[in-house]
Design a protein around this nucleic acid. Structure first.
Lengths: 149, 149
DNA sequence: GTTGAAAAAATATTGAG
DNA sequence: CTCAATATTTTTTCAAC
């Protein structure tokens, strides 16, 4: 789908705040809210807008620790290994990467104890991985909600 | 703020779809929508709900490449170095971590050429960093929208 | 594609238990 | 904290340009 500048402006506003009323968006881009409605619908349809999500503070729901976990996967075990990772609740993202690691996970855990459990009873111990490294996130200096628009 | 199971259910629904009508949430948890409204308001107030965001497909807005970038920061240059990273549009997250790297960035770029530019004219070349490694994301096998609730 | 206006639906507010 | 009822606002639809 081809996006024009108006579409991008709408995306930018909805990315910043998914609850911005169409009427407010319409006012800012000087068009009718029916047009905004129409464009948003088409962008949803086309998959440009993948969804709308509330951002929840992980600490508030009991997850105090974030980490990135680098993994080396043994040859030929990829599918099986990834499938099992996906079943683990604390595993929030599974990226296949170039460089030092085959896979990098983004994980959350309640505390360092439960992270240790996740790693040493959950992941590092799994068949199919030959090496792992846990990089605990001490803090996040900056985090944007999506791509620049 | 202390959350009960009802709050968590509401959070789960809004995390999955921020546009779920309060009336629909109310129906599912068997309460009035005024109650849902009230609880959501309090969770927003308390910062449990940090915001509502449309998830935009990066490819659709021209960002075909994602990468994780590990950086080593020279002693005493932390603040300055991080400040400059924050100014770079393609840098979407800046995590301070334990382990092999002091900082891990999540970056997006239009293509591999522009990623190279970002790295070799933007970041690797910056004062304050002694070492870097770029891990290009070949694919994302799984990605959740927030913490498990 | 866009519009204004009407209809439908949702959210915000109020007052009381 | 929860509710029902009401007021307000937003979303959605649609005939027309």
């Amino acid at each position: 789908m081809k996006l024009d500048d108006t579409d991008r402006e709408i995306l930018r506003m909805l990315q910043a705040d998914a609850r911005t009323p169409f009427s407010e968006i319409a006012r800012r881009i000087d068009m009718s809210s029916a047009t905004v409605h129409d464009r948003v619908g088409r962008m949803e349809e086309a998959g440009v807008i993948e969804g709308y999500h509330a951002t929840v503070d992980p600490k508030a729901v009991g997850y105090g620790v974030r980490a990135l976990v680098g993994l080396r996967v043994e040859q030929g075990r990829e599918e099986d290994a990834l499938g099992r990772l996906r079943e683990i609740e604390g595993v929030r993202a599974i990226h296949l990467t170039t460089g030092e690691w085959d896979v990098i996970l983004r994980v959350v855990a309640e505390d360092t104890d439960s992270l240790r459990e996740l790693m040493f009873e959950g992941i590092a111990d799994m068949d199919g991985f030959s090496r792992s490294q846990t990089m605990i996130v001490l803090g996040t200096d900056y985090e944007a909600d999506g791509p620049p628009i």
